[in-house]
Design a protein around this nucleic acid. Structure first.
Lengths: 209, 209
DNA sequence: CCGCCCATACCACGATAGTGGGATAAAAAG
DNA sequence: CTTTTTATCCCACTATCGTGGTATGGGCGG
């Protein structure tokens, strides 16, 4: 089969070993191959411009920016870019953000190779390539109330071990307001105290330690 | 070069993509090759018995047990087993535990491929294969006081959002004792409150959410 | 235009957490 | 065998947190 009919794939991941594994899988299929690789978000954007791949496999954790940011930048220039997020499980919030940002698929690095090539084929064909178990996991929290930006900001300070008073000073608001935010945070996350709120938020990918 | 003179490597990782990448790297060198792979701890032990590889590349997170447990089991049967821990960064506590358990090397999955093959050669030659930056990171916390088992147990309950009183009941001790443990925990970790203690412990790999 | 969400703020009260000191006993380390 | 560590308990006191209710102003969607 000539290269012209193959699905041209760009792999973005800062782990060389993982890139190697992805390349081995993709190149072993007759209908697709890796045309370029990138290790950072900036590199990904530049490489996309240069090669215009059919499908991008994008890691979420990159040295210079989030994979979602890189995704947004690529789609700002090329609205028809087809990007599959490929990551170790981060929590459902990341998945939602990625899909909102225009990702066509979301795949875990722990997935079997066949699922990866299937997703590439699906996305290239114009479908959405989201495995059923991920979709199920997604549905579970879809209706959940999201934290507001301010609430996330407060929660980050809480995770740092700041007292309400300190957070108030840093955000130039009153301690009472911080308490209100924290109350809402705990209510939304179903946490009984600030500590559990942080734990849940980390698990869900809302904040990272 | 004949197979007889090659370093025989066993790769243990539950991520097929990562296994593929490791295999590609190792098999691309003339002096080593992958003789077997395993996706679980139990599988790793069985496969070791069968193949007696020269070097084992062991992931820390496995479906059935910790990579450290698998390492311990292998070394219980084969005291001269040479195992390199290969993992995404988990926190320095894991590194220490792995080395104490007899790991000959500790490598991050984000390492460049050359570092991996170097580590394999070093360990096979009888040396310890620990990259300098990992060693440096290790030294930083070597002198740090470790939490006792009981303290870790208490901290886990704290991370779940339990109040001191609840923790006391669950552990069949008084609330005052819980407070004492928590005081020691915060002192050792340098945390100002229970929330930061949990955050630090998660970063250091002492507990996992 | 009206209602809802968001961020802000204040007050009061009870609950929980954190500090400091002192104490006992068993186990581990030296 | 002595010292140190670990785990346990109690008390008293202060600091901080979490809850409830109420309120104001801006922004956004219906």
């Amino acid at each position: 089969m000539s290269d012209g009919s193959r699905i041209r794939v760009l792999s973005v991941d800062d782990h060389p070993l993982m890139r190697e594994g992805i390349a081995a899988i993709v190149n072993s299929r007759p209908d697709m191959n890796i045309v370029a690789q990138a290790a950072t978000g900036a590199e990904a954007v530049g490489t996309y411009r240069l090669h215009r791949p059919d499908v991008v496999l994008m890691d979420l954790r990159l040295p210079d920016m989030s994979g979602i940011d890189a995704l947004v930048r690529i789609r700002a220039e090329f609205a028809d870019a087809r990007v599959i997020i490929l990551t170790t499980f981060e929590g459902d919030v990341e998945i939602q953000r990625a899909l909102k940002a225009g990702a066509r698929g979301y795949l875990l690095k722990s997935s079997p190779p066949d699922e990866l090539v299937q997703a590439i084929r699906h996305v290239h064909a114009g479908k959405k390539g989201i495995p059923s178990h991920v979709a199920a996991h997604l549905a579970e929290h879809m209706s959940d109330e999201d934290l507001t930006e301010r609430e996330v900001e407060v929660l980050r300070h809480v995770a740092e071990g700041n007292r309400n008073r300190d957070i108030a000073e840093k955000l130039f608001i009153s301690e009472e307001t911080v308490k209100v935010h924290l109350k809402h945070i705990m209510d939304k996350l179903g946490a009984s105290d600030r500590t559990q709120a942080v734990a849940i938020a980390v698990r869900r990918g809302i904040i990272q330690l």
